[in-house]
Design a protein around this nucleic acid. Sequence first.
DNA 1: CGCGAGGCTTGACAGTTGTCAAGGCAAAGT
DNA 2: ACTTTGCCTTGACAACTGTCAAGCCTCGCG
Lengths: 212, 212
Amino acid sequence: MTEVKEQNRDRVARRQVDKFAERRAQLATAALQTLAELGYARTSLRDIAQNSEFSHGVLHYYFSDKFELITFCVRQCKTECVTHYDHIVATAGTAAELKQGFAAAMAGTLRADAPMHRLWYDLRNQSQFEEAFRADAREIDQSLEDMIWRVVTRFAELSETPPAVTPALAYAMFDGLFQHALIGHVTGDPTAARDLEANVPRVLDSLFPSSP
Amino acid sequence: MTEVKEQNRDRVARRQVDKFAERRAQLATAALQTLAELGYARTSLRDIAQNSEFSHGVLHYYFSDKFELITFCVRQCKTECVTHYDHIVATAGTAAELKQGFAAAMAGTLRADAPMHRLWYDLRNQSQFEEAFRADAREIDQSLEDMIWRVVTRFAELSETPPAVTPALAYAMFDGLFQHALIGHVTGDPTAARDLEANVPRVLDSLFPSSP
DNA sequence: CGCGAGGCTTGACAGTTGTCAAGGCAAAGT
DNA sequence: ACTTTGCCTTGACAACTGTCAAGCCTCGCG
């Protein structure tokens, strides 16, 4: 009896926790969409609420303050960003295939998720001014570096050449490449994605001691 | 007599124009300092005025609105950023000297002007959200690209090897490199500047068809 | 000397922002 | 049927923002 009661209470509690987490995610999605559209500087809590189906008061029911909301958003942003290239690494059978697939994936996400990416750069920049964001931004940056490094090392395996750079350097170069393509793409350069797709293989090659 | 009068009036007018321009520059310097410290998102006109020796009303005497002030700042930012490497290009006598001088200059300005640089990245990011900044950001970006390209072509001359990349690609890579070093430096990584100085030569070499 | 204009301060305005308390409403529990 | 609980809305608050008009001070000119 008491046992049954407790079980019920547990189940209810768990359902509530799930629902709570679900709502948080839902609101975070609305927040991400708004942030990606307006940028960090111009996004208010009311803007975010208006982009969801709730009123502005809800945000303080699910998040303690604006920082917690945005931090939560950043973490969710990570999930969307990081997993993009891993299946390419897994499925590519040859070095050339990996190279081309990687370039195509970068150009693809540039075209498809440009607002998301510009938001990521915005938030990473904010972390230079706002200490509260640093830990999360650093964590995401690290997992992006890891992701790039998985591509590089897999390419090294397939082409049987050891890479000539550190993970950090490889990431810095691809990130610079991508960011410039993004700026071009967002500001209306129609060839930005194509140029990126053409440049990624060149940069990837340059990471290895060329011996022709 | 009328001639003398007119000459006087002209001189007075010119002096006023000079004084006007001087004050604008002075206020822009205060604004730049504030922006570099707080970031675009958190800088108000009152913050800027408090960082100068005037009151907040002055800003609307010298600038029509906030956008004009910040745009003016961005242009002034350019002047400070762009001229940094040109004397290295002019004075270097050998390829090795240029390579080392360039790396040292990058590491030096990273250490000395980190807040300025993070502001530049902030503003360039804003230009992805705020169309009003795009033209100026693009212009600065272009002159930075040109500056990098001067280094690269000079290096090509001195080492008698043609570069294997486009100006845009060269700029993207050095910019990525610098930006990651900046983030590291600002967020407390003590080796960021040293790593940058070590990596710049590698990247510079990688821009040329290596033939060992 | 008076006076007009330029340069700057002051104070106020309307709008926006993050925050939070009071309350409504429906579903679950008893 | 009554209460409790969780979820959400509403409305208000104080602080802050960009903007601008009114006025003060000072300097140079007639």
